[in-house]
Design a protein around this nucleic acid. Sequence first.
DNA 1: GCCTAGGTCCCGTAG
DNA 2: CTACGGGGCCTAGGC
Lengths: 278, 278
Amino acid sequence: MTATTVHQPTHREALWELEDAFERGDLITIFGRCTVEYDGRAASSLDPGRRLLILKPDGTALVHTDENQKPVNWQPPGSEHHAAVRDGRLRVRSVRSSPDETLDVRFETVEQLSAMAVSGRRDLSVTGSEADLRNALLDRPALIEPGFEPLATERPTDAGPIDLFGRDSDGRPVVVELKRRRVGPSAASQLQRYVAAIEREEGDAAAVRGILVAPSVTDRARRLLAEHGLEFVAVEPPSDGSVAVSTATDNDADVVDDDTDDDTAASSTAESAGEGSN
Amino acid sequence: MTATTVHQPTHREALWELEDAFERGDLITIFGRCTVEYDGRAASSLDPGRRLLILKPDGTALVHTDENQKPVNWQPPGSEHHAAVRDGRLRVRSVRSSPDETLDVRFETVEQLSAMAVSGRRDLSVTGSEADLRNALLDRPALIEPGFEPLATERPTDAGPIDLFGRDSDGRPVVVELKRRRVGPSAASQLQRYVAAIEREEGDAAAVRGILVAPSVTDRARRLLAEHGLEFVAVEPPSDGSVAVSTATDNDADVVDDDTDDDTAASSTAESAGEGSN
DNA sequence: GCCTAGGTCCCGTAG
DNA sequence: CTACGGGGCCTAGGC
């Protein structure tokens, strides 16, 4: 048996199980009615309610409710989990330093406590990152502009590292900022900041070009780019490592449907089951 | 009993439990050996391993391993959970559209499946946000500068909304950007962008001041501020709603220790239990 | 739906 | 340790 579970344990029984699970380095889930207090970089308080607490052997603590992807309260990896019975409650406290932070979960009742041996996240491979976009553009620099010659990636400047630096066919320095998704004002500012840094370096103002390469751009960002004489090149979002230019805002994505449901099946829709939020 | 659990169920048994739990709108945890495939905004693949899958009634799906705060794979709220038995495996698929995304978790074996009724995150109160800092400064605008007069918050401009806008004792427009923590280059760019927008509005270049208000600033950000004639005012990080100015980089935080462990207790340290990461 | 910015952002990487 | 920027960021608030 690789997963041990106790139902409606006494607080003392729960504490014993916690001790053993801490010792084994298990991932622990506790479900019950609890309050949550956090104090550290900010501070928060949560009234009694039924929630799921997850304790990881790396020091992570997560308090989840029935909605949202993010835990309602948490503690980062590297924290220390402590458990005790105080005032008739099971108290789980997760603490870390620098910064000093404490998460306090106090259970009135523990409905269930489980401990299980979980394996790490080996062999996760992701595609479609900004790095993939960069590599695709290094393979075919003409996608940015005919004659563009890449010289460096992550080129350091006084304002931070430039995604892609090179020269155009006229020999002018070109700062390229890559984004894997639609960009807003902050990306325009970022590019402008790098261009200004290179201009300061080169000492030859107004000769440095800046190109923002992304799937698309908001109106406001486009205006900000124009105000600073910066350019925009649209590329399809990186899917399988390849990229394509798109002259305007015309998107045509081929979707392959590989669904073949012909067996017993269950399904849950946010609208059909449970009380939908919003 | 508000939490139902089955241990080492057959896939068919697990499917029945899932159907019931979907119907009830429960929060579901499944622990077992599985593969994970994701395709959507990006794509990823995860080799077989023992992991914890969490399914929320709002459509959220989370795959957790033994380390890190973030799930190794996930699906956002609003997705639809589907379960089926295929090829001798329990397949849980979470799908959403716009953007089209699919998360596929295939269990070789299910060690445990639990379903529980969890309550929402009512009554979460947080303090120490940027909004708290803003309110404190509105109460005592002199903390920014003697004679500073706040005129608007979230004031719209062509470059985006300004945190705090006002005038100094000389009647000059002042753009204030607030940050709850130490700031880097991006905050300097953000402030610069807003100042430029106001200067364009006012038509009277160089008369607009920009002040970055934060606990501290990195060297590089400080230089970027100086290059654009922008200013920095240090405030203590917002703790209990009050703020204090600090003339330089001298931090003195009083820490109250309220720990009183005198009962049975268990504790887990990332270094002592389990295989520590890094 | 899109846009904009905050976040106890988390996280990896480089210095 | 700090710094810097990416992220399938997520989430809230406007429009």
